[in-house]
Amino acid sequence: MGAALAAREVSKRYGAIVALDRVSLEVRQGECVALIGESGSGKTTLLRCFNRLTDPDAGVVVVQGDDVSASDPVDLRRRVGYVPQDGGLLPHWPIGRNVALVPWLRGMNDPPALADQALRLVGLDPAAMANRWPRELSGGQRQRAAVARALAARPDIVLLDEPFGALDAITRADLQSTFLELRRELALTALLVTHDLAEACLLADRIAVMHQGRLEQVAPPGELREAPATAYVRTLLARARVVG
């Protein structure tokens, strides 16, 4: 199976700061890869290269076989699902309209029906939710709606930027299990940014550890635990054990 997402020798600088230093990573079709690292490690910058919210200074980024630098960023973003950390629901639109956003932008048939289906996928009742305002929902419901919005146009690929980071532990666990079910059901390819090793181990097939703009190690959770490749990965594991 070919790579759904690929970064080859990708570099990005912001002034004197090196955000990405010759990073190469592949995400296979149907695979979930977690990008883990601390703030400033470059994990979010790498994620944003895949829907051209950021354009790298050097290297090639490929989405479903196409070099993204040759594609129209707006078209690309409409094909790739995206869940930001804060949900990013438009506060002046009801939930139904928020979730129907991408189908509407792509001119698909019956966006409200697609929105209803997506709400059901994430465990929200369209009849109760579609007409409510984002501020009337709990944090967990808002984040579910944000996931529904990313999936409403049925993309093959979803990018998630610390999607459950701002939630309390119980709500987070609920959303994590919902996400696992969705992945299986929809055979999604997912790239997930997180700073939580436990979350990465739970949700991802492989974990990519980033540190100061470089990839330290890319491996399945078990292998990462058994054979940390660098001192930084060992520190990360040790810290997670103390905390977890």
Partner: peptide, 24 residues
């Protein structure tokens, strides 16, 4: 955050202005 999400989901700058920034 709403403006950022609108852009990430494929709204054009004009659509962001008309449907997000202006109403907000």
């Amino acid at each position: 955050d709403a403006v950022g999400a609108a852009r990430a989901l494929g709204m054009t700058p004009r659509q962001i202005l008309r449907h997000v920034r202006l109403p907000l």
